[in-house]
Design a protein around this nucleic acid. Sequence first.
DNA 1: TGGCTAATTTAGGCATGGCTAAATCCAGGC
DNA 2: GCCTGGATTTAGCCATGCCTAAATTAGCCA
Lengths: 220, 220
Amino acid sequence: MTTSQLADRLAVRPASVTAMLQKLAAAEPPLVEYHKSRGARLTEAGQRAALAVVRCHRLLELFLHEKLGYAWDEVHDEADRLEHVVGPAMVERLAAALGHPARDPHGHAIPDADLTPIGPAATLLSALPAGCTAVIDQARDDDPALLRQMAALGLLPGITLTVLAEAPATRVTLGARGATPLELPADLVARVAAEPPEFSTLTNRPSKTMPASPFGPSFF
Amino acid sequence: MTTSQLADRLAVRPASVTAMLQKLAAAEPPLVEYHKSRGARLTEAGQRAALAVVRCHRLLELFLHEKLGYAWDEVHDEADRLEHVVGPAMVERLAAALGHPARDPHGHAIPDADLTPIGPAATLLSALPAGCTAVIDQARDDDPALLRQMAALGLLPGITLTVLAEAPATRVTLGARGATPLELPADLVARVAAEPPEFSTLTNRPSKTMPASPFGPSFF
DNA sequence: TGGCTAATTTAGGCATGGCTAAATCCAGGC
DNA sequence: GCCTGGATTTAGCCATGCCTAAATTAGCCA
Ligand SMILES: [Mn+2]
Ligand SMILES: [Mn+2]
Ligand SMILES: [Mn+2]
Ligand SMILES: [Mn+2]
């Protein structure tokens, strides 16, 4: 990643990114491989550190949803604060209490305890060709409004849909066939991913109305 | 409290305490009433802020013990880190999930949602007169070794004991009468509190062997 | 091969919360 | 009513992580 890509994602100034990259590259062991003015990449150790935080974050999200009754659009922010403070012992306790789950409420894959890297993302709804049938896999979890909108439309991970048209707007049908067609907002289809039914770990499995449940592969 | 008392409790230099007291006194609203070179005291707002953190801390301790299977000597440190990051919504969710409990695993009172101040401490074992019968109420939770020692001796909140002798060492009998007498270490009796049976909210209620369970009044 | 612009890094600051060392305060003791 | 030693505050620093503004680099096009 380049300095400015990171600055954008982190909502921080490029100068701050440079400083942090230098620090992480100088750490023992180095967490990033930093080529000045060239960008940076996670080292093996850095990737493990990152996966540990992601594992913690997603377990927390699922815990808040499953055990404390949070709606799926409310869990991300709380998890974002807790993830940096929860100790390794508690992470494993949470995993055990949740039955070593594979997915968080938004369908994101939860890295396992040995921090094996996660596979690539599924396909965005906006990239599905017309006529295609796919299973909703996961959605960005950093936009509560998006998640509420999805829940209202019945667009939950595990749900199967068929694309009727891609342009000018994405029109889909939910449930295997012929139900009422839906027109999906452009910002929604750009942030929800789906997979071919035969790839999906878990086909069709709605949950409580507002909240969602565990499912499919990763993307962010 | 004086500056140096605070410095001792917080394991911080007196100069740092002075700086923080000045800051808290200047806050809007002021959290402490600070008389320079004279010491400081919590304001109404400061007390509420403190009780909110204590409530969160104790709910977390109970949650870790009850729901995640932590032993009672392991919960304090984890709660100490989480307490500053858990949001108000999660505190109330925790309280609800735990059934709005009155005590944490060490017997400390959990402030209720409206942050009503907590009553004074029970009596230390070291202060009980010989012949006295009392119910274990609570113990300091910041010393895992003490808590493990208590569990090993069967000294859990809710347990009734009778003091046989105060000097040279504290000798007690557990259970209403005549079981095998125990000699209690001086550092233990200085950090465990008990109450007259008729004052105790909950008489006799041991729990899992190592871990403990919710009980009696407060002290720190 | 320059030169120009956009990306990046450096330089210099700010706020937080801590520390040490040097004043300063104050309460007793004489 | 002073004197003095312990308590307290002030002064001056440090590390973190972030910021702005000023260099510096790098890549692309003439
Ligand atoms: Mn998230
Ligand atoms: Mn998620
Ligand atoms: Mn505690
Ligand atoms: Mn406690």
